[in-house]
């Protein structure tokens, strides 16, 4: 393409659109190609190929098995532990997701309001992001276990309330983590929520900041109450941000590992701890671990497709 043609179209060409045959394009952009290749190669060799390889492993078995065989899949789906793990993963995800959305919205609204020392509070609100996941697991263990600090706090609270004449509350120390069932799953969800609430808050805060003050002013002139303004203006305008938060958080929640390992490890499996348990000693079975991780991959892919459709397709800042 000549200069005059370019000028006729009226916009400068960007780099790297092959229009005149691959050879000439390549010679012109040798440097660019050389600069991209290490990254592309890395992602191919250590992300794409391993996923395909895990798929292959999931269809193989110890010596003597004919490849491909769905035996690993039938065996995990026949296992009660695996089905419990799937059920638990869904429960934990739903629990933590709903708590995160509600609390995240409240915290974002709080931090969006103007008040004394808001900058300080905003900084402090980010702290959980800086706490390593394994450490927040350790912390939740301190809080929720038998003779945990949540009980101490509850006692302090009950004592305070009992100072009010005529009130006489009783409280019994609870053990959450070793209880199993809902209680244990609840601690995992709370731990996850504590850790990632800042992310959800930041997403909602970005959304709130994108809404113009004028809309609210117009609404108050028309006599709308705070609650009406929230339900009829804020929420509808936040829908894209809520969608983004739900999808991104669901992807993370289904991959949950450390927190579940620490808080629910042997009592209530989730997909992550199930896969880890199959792969690592003493089980040492990469085959069922691979098939379970392919199942997890399939679930995550559903969310990724949703992300591409509903989030990435719409906003460029995603």
């Amino acid at each position: 393409m000549s200069r005059s043609q370019e000028a006729a179209i009226g916009r400068p060409t960007d780099v790297a659109v092959p229009r005149v045959g691959f050879g000439r394009w390549f010679r012109k952009h040798k440097l660019e190609v050389a600069l991209v290749i290490p990254l592309v190669a890395y992602v191919m060799v250590l992300t794409v190929v391993p996923i395909l390889d895990t798929f292959r492993i999931s269809l193989s078995g110890r010596a003597g098995n004919s490849f491909p065989s769905a035996q690993n899949y039938t065996s995990i789906f026949a296992s009660r532990v695996f089905r419990t793990a799937i059920k638990n993963t869904i429960i934990v995800s739903l629990l933590s997701l709903s708590m995160e959305l509600v609390l995240g919205m409240i915290v974002a609204l709080t931090l969006h309001a103007k008040f004394f020392a808001r900058g300080f509070v905003r900084t402090v609100a980010l702290i959980p992001l800086g706490v390593p996941t394994i450490v927040s697991g350790a912390i939740m263990l301190l809080l929720f276990s038998r003779s945990g600090y949540l009980n101490s706090l509850m006692f302090v609270f009950v004592d305070l309330v009992n100072n009010i004449p005529g009130v006489n509350l009783e409280f019994q120390a609870l053990s959450w983590t070793v209880a199993g069932g809902w209680r244990t799953l609840f601690t995992v969800a709370v731990a996850d929520m504590w850790k990632v609430l800042p992310i959800v808050t930041l997403i909602f805060l970005a959304g709130l900041q994108s809404i113009s003050e004028d809309v609210y002013e117009a609404a108050s002139v028309d006599g709308a109450t705070k609650w009406q303004r929230f339900m009829r203006i804020t929420l509808p305008l936040l829908v894209p941000f809520i969608t983004m938060a739900i999808i991104l958080r669901a992807i993370d929640a289904f991959r949950i590992y450390e927190l579940a390992l620490v808080l629910a490890g042997r009592i209530e499996p989730v997909l992550g701890t199930y896969i880890g348990g199959r792969y690592l000693p003493p089980t040492n079975d990469p085959f069922t671990a691979a098939s379970a991780s392919i199942v997890l991959f399939g679930i995550i892919m559903i969310f990724i497709v949703a992300y591409l459709k509903f989030v990435a397709g719409r906003s460029r800042s995603a």
Binding site: T54, R255, F297, I300
Partner: peptide, 19 residues
Amino acid sequence: LLVTRMFPEFTIGVSVATR
């Protein structure tokens, strides 16, 4: 690039660790 970050680590890790 963002999507590769969403893949479960275990799906990549089982193969990587065996290799």
